[in-house]
Write a protein that binds this DNA or RNA. Structure first.
Lengths: 334, 334
DNA sequence: CGACCAAATGTTAACGTTGCCATTGTGCAA
DNA sequence: TTGCACAATGGCAACGTTAACATTTGGTCG
C-alpha cells in the first residue's frame, strides 16, 4: 500500500472506475442519466479510495456555500441554547450548516459583526443582539448577504425576529385579572435591558387598557435576592394580591420573601414570572410563568435565509408569542 | 451606477487599480514586497468595488478551511453553552471558525456524526457525546480529519476531553470529611448516565480510601423532586450529617426535604451538590458545589485541532478538574 | 436500410485564489 | 560603463467541481 494521497478527487475516482469525471459527479448527485451498473462501479471506486467531495471546489463552482453564519456578542445568555437548537434544526431542514462566530463587543456594532462574517463561507448571516448597537440606525448589510437580526427592534434594511415581550406581559396581566385580581404589582429589571423595558410597557399598558392605573413598581436586578427583597416589601401592602415578576428567579425569590413575612403563596398572594427558567430546580413549586419559544425564533431566522435560497426576499419583522404555563402559584379569586 | 455585479474578484480590483491580480493578492495579505503607494491604490480599488475575498477560492487553493466542525446529538444540555463559549474562544484565538451541526441520534453512532461532517468545510471535528455510541469501540476517524471526542471515556484513535467527574466527588467527599463528618451520604442519579456513574464511583472509592464503608445510597433522577424525597428519607437517619447530591437541583430539593422534616441546613445536616447550576435562582442559599470549567473543555478540544494546524499531533486524553465553591450549606464540626 | 431520437457518457471551460517562477526597474560597486 | 543584487511586479498554472455543450451508442420507425 502506497502512502496516502493528500486528497482524493473526482479525477482519481474516474480513473479507477474507468469513466469520465463528469460521470463521477453525476453519480455523486444521483443523476438519473447514469446507468445503474455504471453508478455501482463508480460507487465502488469511491469506497475503495475513500472519496469525499471537496466543499471548496463545489462552492467555488456553485457560488453558494449552503451555510448560514451566526454572530454572537455573547455566547452565554438565557435562551441562546434553544435558539441554537432552532438554528440547527432549520439549517438541517434546508441542507444548510451553521457557522458560529463570537464577535468582540468593542465596539458593540453591527458593522463589526458584519465584517467578521464577510470572509467566512456563508450565504447569509444572523446577528444576536443583546443590547443596542451603536450603529443600529445607520447599518447597511453587505450586498448579497441576507442579514437577519435577533432583536425586538425593527430595522429598515434587515429582517428581525424575537420573542414578543410586550405580549407576554399582556398574557400574564390578563390571566391574573381574569382570575379576579383587582390589580397586578410588578417587579421590574434594570432599565438598560431592552426586553425588560418592553415587558414593563406591556404590564403598564395592559393594566391601563383595562382601566386600571398601574401601582408603583419595584425595581429588581434579575436576581432572586432582589425578588426576595421585593417580596418582603410588598408583603405588607394590603392591595397587593397578585405579583408579576420580570423573570422567574425574581418570582421565586419573591415567593420566599413573602413566605419570610408569613404570607402564603398562592393563598394570600399570587405570583407569576417569565422565562420558564426554573425547570426542575425548585422542588416545592410549579411557577406560573411564560415559556418563550426560542427554538422557533432561531428557526425563523435561518428559514428566512436558507428558505429564500438565492431568490431575494423582502424585509420582514416577526415577533413570536410565548405560551403561558399554569403552575400552582396563582389563586383564582372568583 | 450600473447593476451590481454578482461578485467582485481580484481580477476586477486588479483592473481598476491597474495592477496584476497577484499584486492584489499580495496586498490582501499585506506582503512587504509591495510598495506602500501601490498598496494604497489597490486598497482604494477594493473599497470602491466592495471587494471581499472569496472563501471557496482561497480554501481550494490552500487546501485548508480554517474551520472546526462541532457535531452534537443534542444541542440542549447542561454545560453546552459554556463549551460553545470555549469552542468559539479557542477558534478565535487561532483565526478559525466553528461550524455547528446537529446529528440525528438514530442510530447513535460516531460514524453518523463523522459522515455528516465529511462534506462540510472543516479541517477537524469535535463530537459531543452524551451517552455511549454503539460503535465507540470500532470507530475510525476519517483520514486527514483530526477528531476530538468530548467524553470521559478514552478512545484509542481519537483524543478525548471532559470534566473530571471522579475527581469532583473526591473533592467534595474529602472536603466534608475534612470538616469533621464521619461519613458522607450520597444521592445518585439514573444508572444510564456515564458521568453520574463516575461521580458515584468517586464517592464510593474516596470513602473507602479513607477507611470508611460507604452507606446505602439513595437513587434520584436528577430532579429536585427526587432530591426532596431523598432529603425526607435521610432526615431520620442519625448517622447522616453530610449529604452529597449528584447535582445541584437534587441538592436543593434535598435541603427543602430536610427542612420539611424539621432539620436545619447546615446546623443539623450539611449538603453539597455538583454543577453550579443554581446560579441566582435561589434567594436564601449559596450552595456548596463544584463548578465545572466547561469553557476550558471546549477550548481544549478546539486547541487540539486548530493548534496542530496541519502538523499531525498524537492522541491525548484530558480530564479537566472542577473547582469546589464554598457556600453556606456545610457545617464545620471540628 | 437510412434517418432520426433518446440514453449514456465524454470534453471543455470556468469559478477565485495564490505559489512559483519570470520579468522589469533601480541603485550601487567594480 | 558594465555587471550584479535586490526590490517590485507580472504571467501562468493549478486546486476540485460541475454547467453547458459535444459525442457516441443502441434502438425505433418510416
Amino acid at each position: 500500500m502506497a502512502a496516502v494521497k493528500k486528497s482524493v478527487s473526482v479525477k482519481d475516482v474516474a480513473r479507477l472506475a474507468g469513466v469520465s469525471e463528469q460521470t463521477v459527479s453525476r453519480t455523486v448527485h444521483d443523476s438519473p442519466s447514469v446507468r445503474p451498473e455504471t453508478k455501482e462501479r463508480v460507487r465502488a471506486a469511491m469506497r475503495e479510495l475513500g472519496y469525499r467531495p471537496n466543499f471548496a471546489g463545489r462552492s467555488l463552482r456553485r457560488g453558494k456555500f449552503k451555510t448560514v453564519g451566526v454572530a454572537m456578542f455573547n455566547i452565554t445568555g438565557t435562551g441562546n441554547l434553544d435558539r441554537m437548537e432552532g438554528f440547527a434544526a432549520a439549517a438541517d431542514k434546508h441542507g444548510y450548516a451553521i457557522t458560529l462566530t463570537k464577535v468582540d463587543g468593542h465596539p458593540y456594532t453591527l458593522e463589526s459583526a458584519s465584517s467578521r462574517m464577510s470572509a467566512l463561507p456563508v450565504d447569509g448571516m444572523v446577528v444576536i443582539m443583546n443590547r443596542m448597537p451603536a450603529d443600529f440606525g445607520t447599518f447597511e448589510p453587505l450586498p448579497g448577504m441576507q442579514t437577519v437580526l435577533v432583536t425586538m427592534l425593527e430595522h429598515p434594511l434587515c429582517s428581525t425576529v424575537d420573542n414578543d415581550q410586550f405580549d407576554c406581559s399582556r398574557q400574564v396581566v390578563e390571566y391574573l385579572l381574569g382570575r379576579g385580581h383587582k390589580t397586578v404589582h410588578f417587579i421590574s429589571c434594570p432599565e438598560r435591558s431592552l426586553s425588560g423595558m418592553r415587558r414593563e410597557e406591556g404590564w403598564r399598558e395592559t393594566l391601563r387598557a383595562h382601566g386600571i392605573e398601574p401601582p408603583q413598581l419595584v425595581r429588581g436586578d434579575w436576581t432572586a435576592q432582589s425578588g426576595y427583597a421585593a417580596g418582603q416589601a410588598l408583603a405588607d401592602d394590603p392591595t397587593c394580591t397578585a405579583i408579576y415578576a420580570s423573570n422567574d428567579a425574581m418570582a421565586y425569590g419573591c415567593i420566599r420573601g413573602l413566605e419570610s413575612r408569613g404570607k402564603c403563596v398562592p393563598q394570600d398572594v399570587s405570583v407569576a414570572g417569565v422565562d420558564d427558567s426554573l425547570g426542575d430546580i425548585v422542588p416545592d413549586r410549579r411557577l406560573t410563568t411564560v415559556r418563550f419559544d426560542n427554538k422557533r425564533v432561531g428557526m425563523w431566522a435561518v428559514d428566512k435565509i436558507a428558505g429564500a435560497d438565492g431568490g431575494a426576499s423582502g424585509v420582514e419583522h416577526m415577533l413570536i408569542p410565548g405560551v403561558l404555563v399554569e403552575g400552582d402559584t396563582v389563586r383564582d379569586l372568583r
